[in-house]
Design a protein around this nucleic acid. Structure first.
Length: 260
DNA sequence: ATGGCGCGTCAAACGCGA
């Protein structure tokens, strides 16, 4: 079973690319971030025509997450618990039935947090704390679980071509990295890193300054596996080729193959 | 060495991202 995550930076702008990717790679589940669309305007029919069930949590203009699955999506939950005043559409979770039982999947769009020293960075750290708390609850269910998405965190120096260029950035702050480590240390496996220990593995290249041509990338999109998913890990990969497509997203799909 | 973009909103710049 193949589960992918992709920050598509606007579903309207990326619809043809997304459909092409799904036709070509055919993941069983794909998590989208930054759909930048309200639920009513999400082009669900186009994805349903490819055999996907669709669950979205959108808002006007920015943010917005979705889960698409060939198998039915049950118990769809919107919003990350812990702050009723948080209006950002950044979290959706659902259960997918599989032959071995059930798999839980979340599509996560973690706050960017820039610039540091502002309420945006405070919001990022608070959001990460809420995520870690909710993750503990999910782990206690002891089922295969994949927390997939754009974490907006560069975990280690090896996750950036030029780590020194990110020292003042919210994605690479010690607090951001510590919060990510704390989440991992609850018992998750970083699927792409597990399968690809080598440096030079990136999921994002800025639109500016020819970043992709220079391979000046960072690894900020992650699939975190619960122990019950990690023991079924077959392979993981990053589909960099979409970054070379016409009008690309600045992020590329990351995927994991689980023996489920 | 440095900086170079793109999407959505809304109809000209601007917020936002990373």
């Amino acid at each position: 079973m193949k589960i992918a995550t992709w920050n598509i930076n606007g579903v309207k702008a990326r619809l043809e690319s997304a459909l092409t990717y799904l036709r070509q790679e055919s993941p069983d589940v794909i998590c989208f971030q930054e759909i930048k669309s309200v639920d009513e305007n999400f082009p669900a029919a186009a994805f349903e025509d490819l055999g996907y069930n669709v669950a979205t949590h959108g808002q006007k203009g920015f943010n917005g997450v979705a889960i698409l699955s060939k198998q039915p999506l049950d118990d769809v939950t919107l919003r990350l618990p812990g702050d009723e005043t948080d209006e950002h559409a950044r979290y959706i979770e659902a259960t997918v039935s599989v032959s071995a039982g059930a798999l839980k999947v979340a599509s996560i769009y973690l706050p960017n947090g820039n610039p540091i020293g502002t309420e945006k960075f405070t919001y990022k750290l608070a959001w990460m704390k809420r995520l870690a708390q909710h993750a503990r609850l999910l782990l206690s269910e002891e089922m295969p679980l994949v927390l997939a998405g754009d974490y907006n965190v560069i975990p280690e120096p090896a996750d950036a071509k030029r780590p020194g260029a990110w020292t003042g950035d919210a994605l690479y702050q010690p607090e951001s990295r510590a919060a990510f480590r704390a989440l991992i240390n609850e018992g998750f496996t970083d699927a792409a890193r597990q399968c690809h220990p080598e440096p030079g593995v990136y999921t994002f290249w800025d639109y500016q300054a020819g970043a992709f041509q220079k391979d000046n990338g960072i690894r900020i999109d992650h699939l975190l596996l619960s122990p019950q998913a990690a023991c079924r890990l077959v392979s993981a990969g990053i589909d960099c080729f979409t970054r070379g497509w016409e009008r690309p997203s600045d992020h590329v799909p990351v995927w994991v193959e689980l023996d489920l």
